[in-house]
Design a binder for these strands. Structure first.
Lengths: 227, 227
DNA sequence: TTCGCTGCTTGATCGAAATCAAACAGGATC
DNA sequence: GATCCTGTTTGATTTCGATCAAGCAGCGAA
């Protein structure tokens, strides 16, 4: 929990533009901005652990946060990946009052923190805040649906292809871009072992995808879309 | 959409006891009860399809509703199973305004229907309603998390064992009970082909689980818990 | 009873991805 | 430069579960 500060201009900006805050009325925004605390955390830092009493709501301002569950043997399964503007720990705001998964900084991150007790209390009085929470939860639930369906319906190369297509700026034309984070993190997000991701990339070479380091080039998105 | 009626005494009762409505203040409850319509639907009836404009919020009063996604070849992946008291289609209430999955009656069901436009409008004014929606979404999100983690961390027999344990009334002692629905539905919920579920059951025989028809007997839950 | 339907089980085969193990590449540091 | 460390790739093997294909059990209808 390195040096906690009040938000600077840059942090205010990102925060106010986030899907969560941008949906709120002025009073709710000011109430939240009064209580917010900013922190910058190194990779691997834990935000919270599954089962902990939920006391803080986190909003990612930069970097990435990874949510995962553990099995008794210590193996990890990634459940969600939060990026700029996303809320981590929101599933515990209203129900159970304990975190449903563990969360760890995946790539050096700046986070905004809100006291959950006060957020809950505010939301019980202000419909706009409660609605914004519900909207965020909707979005996350839809992501989770997509994740479950992808896991069950698509093979590793298919899932990777779909991910790449989602990153392509415009549909149709050839594209090249940088992966926004480590391949091992992407593997986790897609529910794959790193080796499987690597193999998926090489099998996609035959379909016009070249990868060097984090640089990805896609010759023909349309080919990819068809498997 | 068979014979739509106003709620009878029994339906009112279930509805008022549901996690969703029981959390609301009197005004919100009466507002919702004024607009509710009850319908009884046979198995396989579709409630809505992925991508349809979301116009109705469904609350299950009896029976089961299955939410699933399709892939281009028509294969289905079950994403959620709603039982008495659960809301189907809630992920689309606030975000996207289109259903995120298709939903089908899995076992003859009684459903309460609310007009989504009016629910949205109500929720934007009444914090208790918005909060109740958010709470429901939290619960569903947590279920989805569990589903993803289960899929990724556990084998078929393990998933089945965990499901059975969750059905056991008290922990510790031997138990026997009836599966609440068809095995093929359970297979879908657990992300398995029906054959795989069948095989999982027979592999669990060696660990004190006997299954005949829908009747399940568990000799020693503790054995099951350890794999 | 017999038929036919549906849901479940069993068997055989195949393919996808985890796992284990080792080699390799790129950066940082000295 | 050499060295270390971490992340990635490649190879060999194995396990798990999907799929295809029969057989089977239960049940309602004729």
């Amino acid at each position: 929990m390195n040096r906690l500060t009040r938000p600077g201009a840059r942090e205010r900006e990102t925060l106010l533009n986030s899907a969560f805050l941008s949906q709120l009325g002025v009073e709710s925004v000011t109430a939240l901005m009064e209580m917010v605390v900013i922190g910058s955390l190194p990779a691997r830092q834990m935000l919270f652990r599954e089962g902990d009493p939920a006391e803080t709501l986190h909003c990612v301002l930069s970097g990435y946060v990874r949510a995962y569950r553990l099995d008794p043997d210590g193996r990890e399964a990634d459940i969600a990946l939060y990026r700029t503007g996303d809320l981590a720990g929101v599933s515990a705001v209203l129900h159970g009052h304990r975190y449903a998964a563990s969360a760890q900084v995946a790539e050096t991150a700046t986070l905004a923190r809100f006291d959950l007790r006060r957020v809950r209390e505010l939301a019980s009085r202000r419909a706009d805040l409660a609605l914004a929470l519900a909207t965020t939860l909707s979005r996350q639930l839809e992501n989770a649906f997509t994740c479950i369906a992808d896991d069950r319906l698509h093979t590793a190369p298919q899932r990777v292809a779909r991910y790449l297509l989602a990153q392509c700026p415009q549909d149709g034309a050839a594209a090249n871009f940088r992966l926004p984070f480590q391949k091992s993190l992407l593997a986790g997000k897609l529910g794959l072992a790193p080796e499987a991701l690597s193999r998926a990339f090489s099998s996609l070479r035959d379909h016009g995808v070249s990868v060097r380091g984090r640089l990805v080039q896609i010759d023909d998105p349309e080919t990819l879309r068809r498997l």
